[in-house]
Structure formats: C-alpha cells, structure tokens
Design a protein around this nucleic acid. Structure first.
Lengths: 137, 137
DNA sequence: GTAGCTGCAAACCGTTTGCACGTGA
DNA sequence: TCACGTGCAAACGGTTTGCAGCTAC
C-alpha cells in the first residue's frame, strides 16, 4: 500500500558521504554542479563515487535541504540556500548572482488569475555579462 | 581571417528539409521538441534524419528565425514566435502557455542598475497545474 | 563546380541504474 | 539484524559529429 500523501521516502541515514555533501554545499554560494561537488568532497572522502553524489543530491532535493537549479546550461547546479530567489548568470564566466525579488508574489497572483492555473514554482533568470566580463570587453 | 563581428555564418541554402522544418514550426504554437519536429516533418520528407533536424534548428536559432527554449525539462523545445514572451508549463500534461509581460523591461533595468551587469536575456518560467489538470485533481 | 547540406551511424556526456558489498541505527 | 547506502561500471537518452555522397546556387 502507498503512503498517504505522495511518495514520501522513509527515514534516511546520515552517512559520511551525505554529511560532507551537505556540509560542502552549505559552505559555498557558487551553486556548484554535481561534478564540482564530487571534486570537492573527494578531497575529504577520496573513495566517493559520482553516482553517490547524484543519489544524495536527489534525496536532499526531495527533502528540501538543497535545491536543484536549471540555469539554462548543459548541466544542473545545486544550492543549499532554499529560500526563494532568482538568478543572473554571466554567459562568459558563468558567475551566478542571487537576486531577491520581493514583488514576484504579485506576478504569480496575476498569472494565476489571468490563466486559471495554479502556479507552484516561479523562476526568473537573467543572462548577460557580469561587471567584470564587461570590463574585459 | 575571421569575420569582423563575431562568427557570423555565411549564406545558407534553402533546402527542402529546412523549408519544411520552418513551415512546421510556423504552423504550431505548441513549442515542439526536436523529436516532435522530426516526427511531423517526416510525414512530408520520410528520409529526413534527426541529425538534420538538430543541425537546422541550430542554424535557424543562430539566424533568429526560431528560438530554442529550455523550460526545465530533459529536452529543449523550439518556437517560431521570436517576440519576447514568457511561459507557463503544466507539470502534469506539459501544456505550455505563452505569457506576455509588459513590465519585464523595468525589471531588467532595475537588475542592471542594481548589479552592474548587462542583461541580454530575461526568462520567466511558471510551473504548476493548468486549468484542466487542476480539474482532474 | 563547389560550399554547404543530407542520411546514417557512431560518439559524446551528463545522469541514472544494476549489482554485490558495506554500514548506520 | 537488515534496510538503506556505497563504489563501480555499464546503460540511458538527448544531442552532436564524422563521413561519404548529394544538391542548391
């Protein structure tokens, strides 16, 4: 028989691998890719495998401990900052800047009324050249 | 020697394959995937290959005749409507609704001033349940 | 004539998965 | 104890690419 509300995963074990992945993600604001996380956490756990990184990231995202981000690149990024925010990404150096946008709630309400839909997620993504890459011309 | 401004592709030939891909894209508003385009255009050109579809879509996107869209799915979508607009995508039926949002220009200006960046692209994506999927519960 | 395009098939690459072993609670 | 997690390697799937022949101009 299924769990009542959706398919909630039962308990999960706090392994060293999971702990270090969380710890690394909470130590950075640069929205690393799975590959970067793998590379960094392996400094502490040299036997870590990439599959384990992906499996943990999926579980942590399900639990709401991290957020998976699709910023229009060929790979996903991950963020331990789970408060709603948006992003600017530099097309040259791939730097990512967090953007707080207080009036998004109104935007959401407007769309829901206009289209008769229920909005569950809102993502605003800016793309262009960051301060430094503009100077480099 | 390079072309002066960036790497602009020289002339391109209007092949039947290219023509039919454009024609199909201009006939629909459903933001098809490459696979869907392949499937549809093959009704007219049965020997068409998927590689040709991808190569043409890339060229057409470069020329600004179509737009490639990343709506957070595992595959890209394509749209012959190149006027700036945004999207709602239903997480259940994958229906896509176009959204015109006149005040995005201000948003862009605000971000540019605030972060010292040059914004070249702005994408707003809403995710949730469409009118019909809400009714189906 | 020839640069650009096509069909075909293989390669690519980020991500997922099967499996046998390991380990946290 | 044993269900969940791990390392390893292979599989997956959307997209790209090498190549030999074709074709728009």
């Amino acid at each position: 028989m299924d769990t009542k509300i959706g398919s909630i995963k039962p308990s999960s074990r706090m392994t060293n691998q999971r702990l270090e992945i969380i710890s690394y993600l909470q130590s950075t604001t640069e929205h690393p890719t799975a590959e970067k996380i793998y590379y960094e956490v392996r400094k502490k756990l040299p036997k870590l495998s990439l599959g384990t990184v992906y499996r943990n990231l999926e579980i942590l995202a399900e639990k709401g401990i991290v957020v998976k981000l699709d910023l229009g690149e060929d790979r996903d990024r991950y963020d331990a900052d789970t408060k709603l925010h948006h992003h600017f990404i530099c097309r040259q150096c791939r730097r990512i800047i967090d953007i707080i946008m207080p009036d998004v709630e109104q935007l959401k309400d407007r769309i829901e009324g206009q289209l008769n839909v229920r909005v569950e997620k809102t993502q605003i993504l800016f793309n262009g050249l960051c301060e430094y890459c503009q100077k480099l011309k």
